[in-house]
Amino acid sequence: MDKPYFQDIDWPGMWAATTETLYMTAISVVATFILGLLLGLLLFLTGKDNLWENKPVNTIISAFVNIFRSIPFIILIVLLIPLTTILVGSMIGENAALPALIVGAAPFYARMVEIGLREIDKGVIEAAKSMGASTSTIIFKVLLPESMPALVSGITVTAIALVGYTAMAGVIGAGGLGNLAYLEGYQRSQNDVTLIATIIILIIVFIIQFLGDIITSKIDKR
């Protein structure tokens, strides 16, 4: 009670941890968006009664997505250590968290993409076909624009999940606010450090949700 509030906080360190979290989140969101979109499109297109209907391919992708979606993230990080060492060359630092973040989040997002695409009225796809549209035209001019609100709200949810994942990755030495809260806050019993790190994470999450909502409502003309 004697010591002033927040005296333990090393503000430059806190700022550095924040940028590390933002860096990990940003890179993994972009990569997840691209990878998840590809996987989601493949899942959708190879599905029943669809443009590239292909049961074996669909089953394989679906199994892959389900497996990686169900492995708890903290275990996934450990499982991916060999791969990460090959790709990044180290198990420490923000970059070391990226493979696990992307592999963990992309299948999750892929399912959301698939759901978003399934919500498109089949008649609209049929109409495009009846106009003589090729498959690539249908993908880029019908499927993606027509499912855009779902794609954006999906990536918003995924990005927020990724902020949480980065905090977990922090525990195993990836840096960022999670790492700071654990090492400086929890292990050294500096509760104010944990509190501030949590508040910053909350602010990041709120900003992501806010941006996602604005963009979704702006592009949704239904």
């Binding site: 009225d121 008649g123 109409a127 106009m131 003589g132 090729s134 027509e146 855009m148």
Partner: peptide, 19 residues
């Protein structure tokens, strides 16, 4: 696809792109 450009179709539920 070329032939379909000469055989258009309209639908019960219009099937317009809402976007």
């Amino acid at each position: 696809r070329k032939a379909r450009q000469e055989i258009s179709m309209i639908f019960q539920h219009f099937n317009l792109l809402w976007s």
